Simulated assay, not measured.
Amino acid sequence: MALPLAPVAAPIITTVLRYGTVALAGYAIARSVEKGRRDQRAEDALDEVPEGLTARRETEQVNATHRFRRVIRLGSTGPAIEIDATTLTRIRFRKV
């Protein structure tokens, strides 16, 4: 007597198709991203940003900087991880 495999195989096939589609899209995106370069001038500028939030408004644009530096320690004597997140933002409004 043969076992009906259609009810069992349908969820497996849909799951494989779903994850296969996501994997293929991820692969295509990864292939299209160019390899980044390190610009030492930009690294130096990011290192000079003060901690906290600053903003400056000029006639046509607003410049803002933000820096968040924290050390997270796992346990009292465990390894530590330093998080240093810096953003430079420029928003420019122009009449066209």
Rank of each mutant, 00 (worst) to 15 (best):
A85L: 15
G52H: 05
A45P: 01
V96I: 08
V16W: 09
L53R: 10
I29G: 07
E58S: 15
L46T: 06
A85Y: 03
R90V: 12
F93M: 12
T86F: 01
R31H: 07
I91G: 08
F68P: 08
V16L: 14
K95L: 15
R31A: 13
I72D: 06
E34F: 05
L53I: 07
R73D: 12
R70L: 02
E82I: 02
V22W: 12
T14E: 08
E60W: 13
S76C: 01
V16H: 03
G20P: 06
I91P: 05
D47M: 14
Q40H: 11
I72H: 04
I72K: 02
A42R: 13
L5H: 04
E51N: 03
R38W: 07
L74I: 06
T77G: 13
V33M: 11
G75P: 00
A28P: 00
M1P: 02
A6L: 01
I81R: 15
T59H: 02
F68N: 09
I83D: 07
D39P: 03
G52Y: 06
D39A: 05
L17A: 12
Y19E: 05
H66R: 08
L5F: 09
R37Y: 04
R70K: 13
R56T: 05
A6S: 08
A2Q: 08
R73P: 00
I91H: 05
H66T: 11
I12W: 12
T15K: 11
R18Q: 07
R92D: 04
V96A: 10
P50N: 10
G36W: 01
L24G: 06
R92F: 07
Y19L: 13
V71F: 00
A55P: 01
L46A: 14
T77A: 11
F93S: 12
V22Y: 11
V33E: 09
R56K: 02
T15E: 11
R37V: 12
T77L: 09
R37S: 14
F93P: 00
L88F: 01
Y27D: 10
E48T: 09
P79E: 14
L53N: 11
L3H: 00
V16G: 03
L17V: 09
R70H: 09
R92T: 10
R73Y: 00
G52K: 06
E51H: 04
P79I: 06
P79Q: 14
T86N: 00
E48A: 15
A23I: 13
P7F: 10
S32R: 14
G75F: 01
V71D: 04
D47G: 06
R90H: 01
A55H: 00
G52S: 03
T86S: 00
R94S: 15
G20F: 13
V33S: 02
V16A: 09
A2H: 07
E48S: 15
T54C: 00
R73T: 15
T87K: 03
R70Q: 13
